[in-house]
Design a binder for these strands. Structure first.
Lengths: 184, 184
DNA sequence: AAAGACATGTAAAACGTTACATGATTGC
DNA sequence: GCAATCATGTAACGTTTTACATGTCTTT
C-alpha cells in the first residue's frame, strides 16, 4: 500500500475539503489546480476504486437522489486523512516542467528566425488568456482570505500570476532580441 | 511514421548541431535543457534505434577509436532535418507543469501551517541552487551572442532565470502571508 | 584495488491519455 | 428534438522511468 500515486493524493486532498463524485473531482482539478496539475477520467475512476479498496475513502449515500442519474459520492476516511498528512509532511516533491515551446526555441538556430518568433507569440497568447483567468480568481479570493481554504487557493493562484507575468516579460525580451538580430 | 515522439525531436535537434553518441545526448539533455525537459537512457537508446530504422539519422564511423570502448556516433540525415523543421514550424506545443510542491501547498489547509512553510522553504532552496547554475550559464553565453546556437541557448536560459526569480519572489510572499496569519 | 565515469542496451513496471461505451437530464 | 452536460467506467495504446546487465577506462 501507499504507493503514493499522485492522483491518489489529489483525490484525498480534494475529499478532505468536501465529499465529491468522480465527476466533481475532475472539475475541481480542471478549475482549481489545472494550471499546475492535470487529471483525466481514465485515471480518476480507477484511483477511486483502488482508494476504496484500501479503505482510504468510502462511498457515502446521497440522501437526495432526485433523478435516475447514477451518482457516487465519496468521503475520506481516517486512514485516508493520515495518508494525506504523511504525504504533505514529506518535504520531498517532484516539480517537473515539460515545455515544448522552449524546446522548439532551443533548436531555433536551424531555421528561419520568424519560426521562432511565431513559437514565442503562440506561447504568449496562450499564457495571456490563462493569466486573465488567474487574475480573475485571484481578485475573488483576495476578498475572503480569512477562509483557510481560500488562503491556500489564493497562494497557488498567486504563484500562477507571478510566473505567468514573468513568462510574458520574457516573451517581450526574447522577441525583441530576435527582431534586433534580424533587423525585423 | 512521424509519430512525433518528443524524445525523437530532442535527439534530432541535438544532432542538428553536431554528431553525438547516445551517452553524449543524455548529457546534453541534462545540462542544456534539463530545467524544462528530461530524458533517460531507457528512452534515448530505443529512440536512436527507431530513428536509424526510419532513416532520420545514421551511424557514422568514428575515425579515432583509440580504446576498446564501444562508441556509436550518430548524425542527422536530410530526412531527419526535414522532420525537425516540420515539427519546429508547427506552432502548437504542449506546455506542461507538474508541481508537487504547489499541490501540497494547495492542500495545506488540512494541516499545521508550519508544514506548508517547510514545503515552500524546501522548494525555495531547490530553486535557489538551480538559479545559481542558470545565472552562471547566462553570463557565459551572454559574452558570445553572435554565435547563433549560443543565442537560442541564451534565450532559454534567460527564461529559466526570469521564472526562477519569480518563484523566489513568490516564496517570500507566500511565507510572509502564512507567518502573519499564524503570528510566527 | 576500487570507485566513478564512460558506454550501450533491454525488460518490467508505472502511469497516464485517448477513445470508446452507455445512458440520463437539462436547457434551448 | 437536439445539443450539451451530467455521470461512470473500461480498454487499448503509448511513453517514460527504473532497474538490471555488461564491460571498459581513468583517476585516486
Amino acid at each position: 500500500m501507499a504507493k503514493d500515486r499522485k492522483i491518489d493524493m489529489v483525490i484525498l486532498g480534494l475529499l478532505s475539503h468536501e465529499n465529491l463524485t468522480g465527476y466533481d473531482i475532475k472539475k475541481r482539478i480542471d478549475n482549481a489546480i489545472g494550471f499546475f496539475w492535470k487529471g483525466s477520467f481514465g485515471s480518476i475512476y480507477p484511483s477511486l476504486a483502488s482508494l476504496t479498496d484500501s479503505g482510504s475513502i468510502i462511498k457515502v449515500e446521497t440522501p437526495d437522489i432526485k433523478d435516475g442519474r447514477e451518482r457516487i459520492l465519496y468521503a475520506i476516511t481516517q486512514t485516508g486523512k493520515e495518508q494525506l498528512l504523511d504525504w504533505l509532511s514529506d518535504t520531498k516533491a517532484v516539480n517537473d516542467l515539460k515545455y515544448e515551446s522552449l524546446l522548439k526555441l532551443f533548436f531555433g538556430g536551424v531555421t528561419d528566425c520568424k519560426v521562432s518568433i511565431n513559437t514565442i507569440e503562440s506561447f504568449r497568447s496562450e499564457i495571456q488568456s490563462s493569466l486573465s483567468i488567474l487574475r480573475f480568481y485571484q481578485n475573488n479570493l483576495q476578498s475572503d482570505l480569512n477562509n483557510n481554504d481560500h488562503l491556500f487557493y489564493y497562494l497557488t493562484v498567486s504563484f500562477g500570476v507571478e510566473t505567468y507575468e514573468a513568462y510574458l516579460r520574457w516573451c517581450d525580451f526574447a522577441v525583441k532580441i530576435l527582431c534586433e538580430r534580424n533587423n525585423l
